[in-house]
Design a binder for these strands. Structure first.
Length: 441
RNA sequence: GGAGCUGUGGUGUAGUCGGUUAACAUGUCGGCCUGUCAAGCCGGAGAUCGCGGGUUCAAGUCCCGUCAGCUCCGCCA
């Protein structure tokens, strides 16, 4: 008899409705204990939902003792009969237990709860992540990445995995983490930029990578971290950055459609956000136009010549929403001064790059551009930016032996989730956050 | 790197112009309770108020320093 029980198939909580009257076996966490004199109630939680377990002390004193010894968040196995019961507010279902096994007894003094500060919740991230809304976040992330890959796959992209250990910097600007590497120094990649461009020189035509990047910036904001997942795309045979934007908007539309179909209702219920599948094309606004707009709106322009400050980005986004009813906007043609050396410049306006940023609800989620693929021009632009050619020799070589015109973009995965779900901090949507003051857990 | 705010039992908070045993909720522990469902009721334990220094007869409460957290700016995805 006992052996038969042990062999019984595991049922997930969300399948119990179809098992009324049947004997089932479930496993999960103890969510709530209501231990009364005659009746005992447990709420057990698994990844799919909550179910009440109801035990009569008189009828089953042995189980009563086990239940009285339970603690919240303990992991148990319950074998029993599923009963429909209108009186049960939790879905009208309950299990009358026959056997309860404690698989992992939890210390009753939990160090966090859902109302704890973000910092404490991050200290105890594995407990915090048990909450269904956190499961949802990572289910959405999974759907997003899956849809991205589907789209790439359907469009002939090749996936690459570029090294994260590098012998030199890939881009100026963002600072690098350095580490001891045998008898020399290595750097953690702050971007797969150079290596995805290498794939263009290698004739891969179209590539993508989803991978970690590292930035040694002491950034104390709600949208920065020192390690994050970057989504990178690079495309050959383009004539301008417009083609990169055209790709990105179609790709994003596909991804958001998938997210809306699969999680739209849950996102609405849990985060109160309507997932909008964006219409094509996304609105575009040149940096010059953006500056004019901000000037008209009386926004004091930042000293940094030619870039938008966060407030400026929000104002532009609001304007686009009012005028076009669109959540996205491509801001294009950034001045040379605020862009890296490898961005191609406009032939007729050499002070402007063929580049763009994508803002979603006022937050920057992408930087893209057509790259400069002509060796001499690229080397000259690098020198103008004060880079030593020896340091990027390996990179410049990509353009020396025949390289297609190409362009691409980098996209922040957690920033996308943050904006999608309207959460205030990237740490909430990052599995394990890394920042200037956090290296654990 | 710059600016601001915050730092009180496990967790979340209150603490009024500085004044005697630091309060409340929740969790936890014990007891009670014939089906609960954010269970309820009674009782207990638990904080020397981030840390260091100062002002004062007296400091959680004021000042300085320091550390930590958060937010914004800079940097960027």
């Amino acid at each position: 008899m006992l052996e038969k029980v042990v062999e019984m198939k595991l049922t997930r909580v969300n399948q119990l409705r179809s098992q009324v009257g049947q004997e089932v076996r479930i496993k999960g966490w103890v969510n709530t204990i209501r231990d009364q004199k005659t009746m005992q109630f447990l709420i057990v939680r698994d990844e799919t939902g909550l179910i009440q377990i109801a035990n009569s002390r008189k009828e089953n004193p042995g189980l009563a003792e086990i239940i009285s010894g339970l603690t919240n968040e303990s992991v148990i196995e319950v074998v029993g009969q599923v009963m429909a019961n209108e009186a049960v507010q939790l879905g009208g279902l309950e299990i009358i237990p026959k056997q309860i096994t404690v698989l992992s007894l939890a210390d009753p003094n939990l160090p966090v709860d859902k109302d704890s500060s973000l910092s404490i919740r991050l200290d105890w991230r594995f407990i915090d992540l048990r909450r269904p809304e956190n499961h949802l976040i990572f289910q959405i992330q999974t759907t997003a990445e899956h849809a991205m890959r589907e789209y790439w796959y359907q469009n002939g992209f090749i996936e690459i995995h570029s090294p994260k250990l590098m012998g030199s910097a890939s881009e100026s600007g963002a600072e690098l983490f350095s580490l001891k590497y045998f008898d020399t120094t290595a750097y953690l990649a702050q971007s797969p930029q150079f290596y995805k461009q290498m794939a263009m020189a290698a004739g891969f035509n179209r590539v993508f990578e989803i991978g970690p990047v590292f930035r040694a910036n002491p950034s104390f904001t709600s949208r920065h971290d020192t390690e994050f997942t970057s989504i990178d795309v690079e495309i050959s045979w383009i004539d301008s950055h417009e083609e990169v934007m055209a790709f990105e908007e179609q790709w994003l539309q596909y991804v958001l459609k998938a997210i809306r179909e699969k999680h739209g209702a849950a996102i609405k219920e849990t985060f109160g956000v309507d997932v909008v599948v964006p219409e094509l094309p996304f609105p575009r606004m040149s940096m010059e136009e953006a500056y004019q707009l901000l000037d008209e709106k009386g926004h004091e322009l930042p000293e940094a010549k030619g870039d938008l400050d966060p407030e400026g980005e929000r104002l532009v986004a609001r304007h686009i929403m009012e005028k076009y009813g669109h959540e996205f906007v491509f801001v294009t043609d950034y001045p040379v001064a605020v862009r890296p050396f490898y961005h191609m410049r406009h032939e007729d306006r050499p002070h402007l790059t063929k580049s763009y940023d994508l803002l979603w609800k006022g937050l920057e989620i992408t930087t893209g551009a057509q790259r400069e693929h002509r060796y001499d021009i690229l080397a000259r632009q690098a020198q103008e930016k004060g880079l030593s050619l020896e340091g990027i020799d390996f990179y410049l070589n990509f353009f020396k032996y025949g390289c297609p015109p190409h362009g691409g973009f980098g996209f922040g995965l957690t920033r996308m989730l943050m904006v999608l779900l309207n959460v205030a901090n990237v740490r909430e949507v990052t599995y394990l956050y890394r920042g200037p003051n956090r290296l654990t857990p």
